[in-house]
Design a protein around this nucleic acid. Structure first.
Lengths: 109, 109
DNA sequence: CACAAATACCTTGACCGTCTAGGTATCCAG
DNA sequence: CTGGATACCTAGACGGTCAAGGTATTTGTG
């Protein structure tokens, strides 16, 4: 039961959210659940990290939000990518690819 | 010439330093140069990040330091791994492997 | 000789993203 | 009626990285 500080997440959460939304609009809670499920809980998305991240991205024009109704018919805020968000996603995927390849080359080499 | 904020480095610098030292003792400046060369500058190691990181790790008992002479015969502080440092290296490599696989699965999937 | 650049170390404070730990409200199951 | 899941929000702490300064020595250049 190690502490497993999640300092690694730093900087990647934004790209992960953008990628999640590239499949279509989703509300915040669903984004978190989807990422956790998709990664078998290797990535844990804390709400205290997620919501502020969503606001930052909306403010930067990467996302737009609309209130709606969830699958369970609860009020929920749906986010979707803007064109700028799509561009940023591409850039960040590229940056991740470079960076992770470099780190892996060192650590796993 | 994008700004390329290095927020991704967060949390990996420690593992990168540990790995570098697993090949044998090195002084701080040499660790930075080695990592940059090894990764074709994909990873840039700022001294303002490196030296504090070295102190933190020494304090946690992952490294031990000794003053000596560099290849160019200048005074330099050589760091080497402690047994605890070796253990931590293994754990952090494992954590990186898990995490990066999860992120890559999402971003590159 | 003067000066820049490289080597090698160190430090301060700002910055900023994540986390902890709270909170609200609704709905369903037991 | 109680607990847990859904769904949102926030304040403040935390902590690692970075920018920008600094010292001292050596080597190379004009």
């Amino acid at each position: 039961m190690s502490k497993e500080r999640n300092t690694l997440l730093h900087g990647t959460l934004e790209a992960l959210v953008l990628k999640t939304l590239s499949y279509g609009p989703r509300h915040g809670y669903a984004i978190a659940r989807w990422l956790e499920e998709r990664t078998d809980d290797a990535i844990q998305v804390e709400e205290g990290s997620l919501y502020p991240a969503l606001y930052r991205m909306e403010e930067r024009g990467l996302l737009r939000a609309e209130w709606g109704r969830s699958e369970l018919d609860r009020r929920a805020k749906f986010y979707h990518l803007t064109p700028r968000g799509e561009t940023t996603l591409r850039e960040e995927v590229e940056a991740w690819a470079r960076f992770s390849a470099a780190v892996s080359a060192v650590l796993l080499g």
